[in-house]
Nucleic acid binder design. Structure first.
Lengths: 275, 275
DNA sequence: CACCGTACTTTACGCTGTAAGGAGTGGCAA
DNA sequence: TTGCCACTCCTTACAGCGTAAAGTACGGTG
């Protein structure tokens, strides 16, 4: 078996992700208690925390090594003493914030209620840390909190008695739905902040232009017009939310109901042997 | 009503998106038939086509004005004669490739079959142009093909008789599911190409490290282990597909079934008055 | 006290989108 | 025919990015 590139970095990456509690600084495993030279003024934890703050406040695009360094009163290059590269820093950020999600859910009122609570928490989490949505889904980070959140979701659905391969598909669908729904809202907020133009004003400025360039819209795309014929019914949680967000909240609740009913049908089909 | 920034660009953007057939070059509306100065060596269409080619071949990250210019034998700045900025170019790319999607679907065998055909086509489309997944969802481009694809999807589901607000939610869920499922595969391919490490080798290099740093995985996260206990059943379309992609295909079919059953339940609830 | 490993800094490279200004082309009015 | 000038396309420039390379200053250990 030939070993490919990325192996050395994987070493560093794994020990950073799984490093134990951090008494003062550095990682517990590869750090001698005393060493020559100046004292360490930073720590991996401090750097990750600062990076999360930058990303939360200014978005993933503004997350630069220089920006993180500046927040800590250092240059960009100082960070490379603690973290091998920006990619590993993002992995650490990702696994750290995943720790905010609860590991347990109340199953006493059935899986539908528990899964809905999970969805609401996860949605709120994504909107609190919208940059998480830009972390690639392709290869898992394999950090402790990533495993913990997956375990928590699996625990909610395990009681349905669905066989493992089906459960994998259901978990994927559910996770993707919440992620996608949050993405739309996060993108909209990002756009509003980046351009300084809110959704409502944006639409008011586009609408007459569309009318001019495509006056026959209603004839060419009758169903698009029909679908948007009326405002969404009020949604309890989002009375004060701006334009697009109220719409997004409505779509979220409708789509979520569809998904839950679909899971119910799947349980009926594949035999839920437990309650 | 105060008009905000972005208005002037919106003008240009709209006339580029909705410009009629392109006899030789330039846009039909704001281009006089003859003009002083050197002949135009490029055209908006040629630039958009070249940009799509670059993005298809090298990914969104490699799409630079210099790269597009080079493919056309010009410098980056030459493009600015035809296109106001990179943002508008991406809008044009997006609306152009959306034109590849079919506008009609065979409804003779019911909405389930038609919607499934739609999903397969859309998934294949995303994998053909993975960069499309990185175009922001927040604010629609309002181009002709964007309307056309939405109309096509609405037409498939209109026959269910679902009321408009519910249909909006269903359309959103369906579109998000396909987009998310394609995203995972696209990200994986991108990662494999960028790092030169395939999924299988990647896992083989990570697995022993994980074992070393977290030897109690099975005890801490029993359901994560249980869920992945066995290989996914073979899926017809993806026998030759690599590792992760076969898994992704399985999840896609399972999740899709869940979604279809959920829509069925929604029709039963909200009264499908048509067939 | 000298040594030398360490924390951190400065400098540098090639990349990005695009503003600014310059060069050469060619239709049209004088 | 000449000169104008709108036009296409070019070169140059700037501030920003991740990070390699080299330099500086600190301080525990021989």
């Amino acid at each position: 078996m030939v070993l490919y590139a990325g192996q050395g970095d994987a070493q560093r990456s794994m020990s950073l992700l799984w490093r134990g509690p951090d008494p003062a600084s550095g990682s517990a495993s590869d750090r001698r208690p005393s060493r020559p030279g100046p004292k360490q003024g930073l720590s991996v934890d401090a750097i990750v925390e600062a990076a999360v703050a930058v990303a939360d406040e200014q978005g993933m695009a503004a997350l630069s090594m220089r920006a993180v360094g500046q927040r800590l009163g250092r240059t960009a290059m100082a960070l490379y003493t603690y973290v091998p590269s920006k990619a590993e820093l993002i992995d650490l950020m990702y696994d750290k914030v995943l720790g905010e999600l609860p590991a347990e859910h109340d199953l006493s009122r059935g899986w539908r209620a528990a899964l809905t609570a999970w969805a609401r928490e996860t949605r709120a989490f994504y909107l609190r840390h919208p940059w998480v949505l830009q972390v690639s889904q392709a290869r898992p980070v394999l950090g402790p909190n990533e495993f913990a959140t997956l375990e928590a979701l699996a625990r909610v659905l395990h009681g349905t008695g669905l066989p493992a391969p089906v459960l994998r598909g259901v978990i994927g669908a559910v996770a993707q739905f919440v992620r996608g729904a949050a993405q739309v809202v996060a993108d909209a907020r990002q756009a509003a902040r980046a351009t300084g133009v809110g959704d409502e004003e944006w639409w008011f400025s586009r609408s007459p232009l569309l009318e001019r360039h495509a006056p026959d819209l209603a004839r060419r795309f009758p169903l698009v017009v029909w679908i948007n014929q009326d405002d969404p019914p009020a949604v309890p949680d989002a009375d004060d939310a701006p334009y697009l967000e109220r719409d997004a909240m409505h779509n979220f609740t409708v789509g979520w109901e569809v998904l839950l009913d679909g899971i119910e049908a799947s349980i009926a089909k594949h035999g839920g042997d437990q309650r």
